[in-house]
């Protein structure tokens, strides 16, 4: 199986075209295997009672963060559907939808970066040495985000930034309502841009598959609810988080931007 695709041009030179989409099946297979194995292992383990969702409601995600998350999610899904389905043989007019969704995602990410750098406590997402014990210590509770959540966030950050950077480069080569196309990039660099764009897309497909799986798992479903409604219960907080590391405010209080 190839990682990249080449084409021989009329002079016999090999032209780099982009990532080999055979890798998509590999990524989907690995994601499916991981999910299947993880689900089987957890189903065989001891069942613990889930914390109650009743009681005091603590703020986990503010409205602005939730909106960002769902706009990003919608745009990424549109991008993957419009980018990947034609490759899989389902033909439709995808390009305009693709770049519009790409611009929406870029705007959402810029908003998130500004908000994270200037209005939020970035240290909550920083991976620290102490976090590295998480997978080996069942009794240990995390702060606002677990090592796995931080890991997924940073992996997603790298992939989304890579896909945006290369996407904007490719966008600059298209005819748009604002400019006409221009072959300013060499064919080789264009090929590499497609490789990075494709690889980051494949990474996102894998990562999002896992993200959706975990968001639907019964013991993690309260996080999904918190991304929809904003809160977790006091019981869920105590069962999953170290109250010294993260002590959220009650939903009924007037919450100021502190997390």
């Amino acid at each position: 199986m190839d990682i990249v695709n080449y084409k021989q041009d009329v002079w016999g030179r090999e032209v780099l075209l982009g990532v080999s989409w055979d890798l998509l099946w590999l990524i989907l297979m690995f994601a499916f295997l991981f999910i299947a194995v993880h689900a089987i292992i957890l189903s065989r383990g001891e069942r613990t009672e889930l914390p109650s969702s009743e009681g005091a409601r603590l703020v986990r995600h503010l409205m602005a963060d939730r909106l960002f998350h769902w706009i990003l999610a919608a745009s990424v899904i549109v991008l993957i559907v419009t980018g990947v389905l034609p490759v899989m043989g389902i033909k439709f007019s995808w390009l305009t939808l693709h770049w519009i969704a790409g611009l929406v995602m870029t705007a959402a990410v810029v908003f998130h970066i500004v908000r994270s750098l200037f209005f939020k406590d970035l240290s909550l997402m920083r991976i620290q040495a102490a976090d590295l014990d998480d997978p080996f210590d069942d009794a240990k509770k995390s702060g606002k985000y677990s090592l796995a959540q931080k890991g997924i966030h940073w992996a997603m950050t790298v992939l989304v930034l890579a896909v945006i950077a290369t996407g904007l480069l490719l966008f600059s080569l298209m005819t748009t309502p604002w400019w006409s196309r221009d072959n300013w990039m060499s064919e080789t660099n264009l090929g590499w841009t497609f490789v990075v764009h494709g690889l980051s897309t494949l990474g996102l497909v894998g990562l999002i598959s896992l993200h959706i799986y975990f968001s639907l798992r019964p013991e993690k479903r309260f996080y999904t609810r918190s991304m929809l409604k904003g809160w977790i219960s006091s019981d869920e907080h105590k069962s999953n988080h170290d109250t010294d590391l993260w002590l959220p405010q009650q939903e009924t209080e007037r919450v100021r931007e502190s997390d």
Binding site: K7, D9, L17, D182, L190
Partner: peptide
């Protein structure tokens, strides 16, 4: 028709739509 690796031939460029 010349055999260039343009979009239609599976490549990444259109040689006709350039300045």
């Amino acid at each position: 028709r010349r055999g260039l690796s343009c979009y239609r031939a599976g490549g990444n460029l259109c040689y006709a739509d350039t300045p």
